[in-house]
Amino acid sequence: MSHPVLRVTFILLFAIVMAGCATGLPRNPLADWQPSPNHEPRRARAIVLHHTAMDSAEGALHTLQTENSGGPVSAHYLIGDDGRVYQLVSEQQRAWHAGGSRWAGISDLNSWSIGIELDNDGAEPFSEAQIRSLLVLLEDITGRLGIQRHMVLAHGDVAPTKKDDPSALFPWQRLADAGFGLWQREHLSAPPAGFDPWLAMRLLGYDLRDRSAALAAFHRRYRGRDERTWLPGDDAILYDLQQQMLQMQ
């Protein structure tokens, strides 16, 4: 049996923690609570898009509410093939959707992003109803949370060595036409002498520790294919995207 004094101490500490939970976020019972108004909820800086690689929204919901073979997984939102939008995790909380990831030199995208799963098996086109709902949701989230509209990323962008979602069939140009993400402009200029395409990819945010994987992610998003070597015209696309990024700074 535990010592009576220790037992009473534990009960008191537990009661203090529970009292803190009843009035707001948990508080450390070892410290004197002297609240400051100078704070805000942790704010997302990016949105990461996924496809579920499953046969139905119902099956995806079950997985996102339990776990898969790799352990627990979740996302803030799931959009069904019929356009129905489900929310699974509060935007103020960290969902487990991006895994080991990196963008613009920052790791752990789970901590600073909103995850949106799209009901899609990875081999089929995305439905019109689904894309319309996604555009409405992106407009809402970026507006409320102050996320820069170009910071709509693919899971394959931020984890290129492990993931390829959403697939090469995802309509990134459609999103860009609505003002989300980046897309090359219609009239491209030849890059100047000395232009470094790898430096441009790094500026966009790609992690270049595995350059072939990063290049595949770039091609999947901007060229609709998974090539791991340079293609004709890549330098002009990257130069244009680089110029767009520099104009935002």
Rank of each mutant, 00 (worst) to 15 (best):
E117Y: 15
R102G: 00
W96N: 12
D81E: 11
V136R: 08
L135H: 03
V152L: 10
V48W: 10
I131L: 05
G100D: 06
T66K: 06
K163D: 14
Q92S: 15
I116D: 09
M54P: 05
W103I: 00
A129N: 08
L61T: 02
N120G: 01
P125C: 04
A57P: 10
V73A: 06
A98T: 12
G83F: 01
V85F: 02
V136L: 13
H62M: 12
Y77D: 04
S56W: 12
N120M: 02
L61N: 11
G105I: 05
L137P: 00
W112Q: 06
I47Q: 08
V136P: 01
V152C: 08
K162S: 06
A159M: 04
L64Q: 10
Q148M: 12
D121I: 08
S133C: 01
E91P: 06
P72A: 10
A95N: 09
H155R: 15
S113A: 11
P125E: 00
S101H: 01
D119E: 06
V85C: 02
E128D: 10
Q93E: 15
L135E: 07
L153Y: 05
L49S: 03
H62S: 14
A129I: 00
G80R: 00
L138W: 04
G115Q: 12
V158F: 02
V48T: 04
Q92T: 11
E128Y: 00
A53L: 09
D140R: 15
V158K: 08
G146L: 08
G156Y: 03
V85K: 00
Q65F: 03
N110C: 10
L134G: 00
I131P: 03
L88W: 07
A75W: 13
L109E: 13
T52A: 15
S113K: 05
A60D: 10
D119M: 02
D81W: 05
